[in-house]
Amino acid sequence: MRKLVLTLISVSVVSAGCTTATNIDEYRSSDRNILLGETEKVVVLGRRHAGEYETEAGFISCIGNKLSNGNIVSVYSEEGFIDQLYPWFEPRTAPLKLARMKQILQEPMISARIRSLDIRYMIWVDGKTEVTDRKGAMSCAIGPGGGGCFGFAAWDKVSEFEAIIWDLEDINEEGRVRVDARGSSYVISILVPVPFLARVQAQACDGLGKQLSSFFSKTVTAE
């Protein structure tokens, strides 16, 4: 009985500590879903123009994987797109506003290249994950008889991302999704460190990916 209570307390502490809270807001320009044609693709790009941070390439590929998991959206790789359109999507030249995108697409070579890649929609993702608060201390030592760590350390992480969907054919904004995920992680150590890590960025990716997927439907072709 005592063992059971101890186990229950430990499990509660661990789950409470690692819980992440995720909020998702969305705006849609239309009530109807975006209908993707048989060959039409979507490209997800990370914004890297800000001075103090850049949207991680790993996060962009995570969203791409979530989007393509449902077999509705076909995703073109970010790296491939940036190379194919070089140098128009580099940090210095990338269009951050729809008006600039429209201007870029007026260059026949660029619009022809985008069409040849079958890319109809572009999703801009901007955001970062950061550690907001650190508590506790841990010290480790090593000697001839062995080593170990002792202490407790905790930290909070916040992931805030916004995704904007652009239609490259009609040059308009189809919608926006904003996600923020928060979570606390900690490490307890009595000789051996035991980490309990909150997967904040993974939660943000999951939430954003699922919400973005809900914008799209596949066109059903009549047989």
Binding site: Y86, P87, P91, R92, T93
Partner: peptide
Amino acid sequence: IMALRDTGAQLVT
């Protein structure tokens, strides 16, 4: 590599 790509971007534009 980012700096060299930026050089290329400026040469083109």
